[in-house]
Write a protein that binds this DNA or RNA. Sequence first.
DNA 1: ACCACATAAATTGCATGCAATTAAATTGCA
DNA 2: TGCAATTTAATTGCATGCAATTTATGTGGT
Lengths: 151, 151
Amino acid sequence: MDKSALLELDNQLCFALYACSREVTKLYRPFLDELGITYTQYVTLLALWEKDEVAVKELGRRLYLDSGTLTPLLKKLEGLKLLRRERDPQDERSVIVRLTPEGRALKERAAEIPERVFCQTSLTPEGIESLRDQLRKLTVEAHTQSCDAGL
Amino acid sequence: MDKSALLELDNQLCFALYACSREVTKLYRPFLDELGITYTQYVTLLALWEKDEVAVKELGRRLYLDSGTLTPLLKKLEGLKLLRRERDPQDERSVIVRLTPEGRALKERAAEIPERVFCQTSLTPEGIESLRDQLRKLTVEAHTQSCDAGL
DNA sequence: ACCACATAAATTGCATGCAATTAAATTGCA
DNA sequence: TGCAATTTAATTGCATGCAATTTATGTGGT
């Protein structure tokens, strides 16, 4: 690549990621508004629908979020009666998150959201899978680098 | 795909994007700390290094950001003496953003950041280009959809 | 048992993002 | 010309993200 092009906005993978993530998230908003939740609350529920009764710590590992983000978010979802937060009797440092019946029930109403969102794009199922797998790989690499740097 | 897998977190392209964007952004932090700027300030400067003397509106189009985000961000950069904000005499509704000499000079110090970041990954230049182009296409599609929906 | 160290959440402070509203300026058209 | 509709920034309010610190709890070694 031309040296002078190295700093061009449209050549940056980081900016492509940053912009794409925000624009795709916006596609979810109309659907999530119907459920009365935000995008971050949605991915948190995705994680919990898959594996319930997890510590905040583990949820954070799964979502790449720390307690500074999760604590207020989980309190919000608790206020919506979608989950409960309780200290782990086995280890009082941990807080265990458990879906309520309402929280579990919301999964049915969310079931069709992914399809409805990606119908709006020209992506094929194969295209989605391929892109998703490339991103997952890069995410793990980037995360490993960040952690290594911190030592 | 299995029906029950439709809501699995690791099958979501949206989550792959969301997580990847944040993790890759974190790789920039150590480098940007040296320059005393944040990631959003960095991409704003990338846009301005490429095309200076633009209205806030156009900068927003370029970055997919609105004045609610840009106004405080540009005021911060103005406080750092990297740019100036002035009303357009031709159209007093617009605010024109202009880099200061210091703002322009910062480009030199930023020149090697993209390489240094992606050295930390296993991505090849071709892999970066390919991924970036897929994301750009999706970004434009998603943005178009959002705008259409708003009408 | 004691204590240094480690671990998990919560808290604090700051910087986004973005919807919604407001204020000022411009435009278009009757 | 006059004025309604439009356009651009700025403002407001709320929800993240995340670094850094604090608080509470657990662990390991002596």
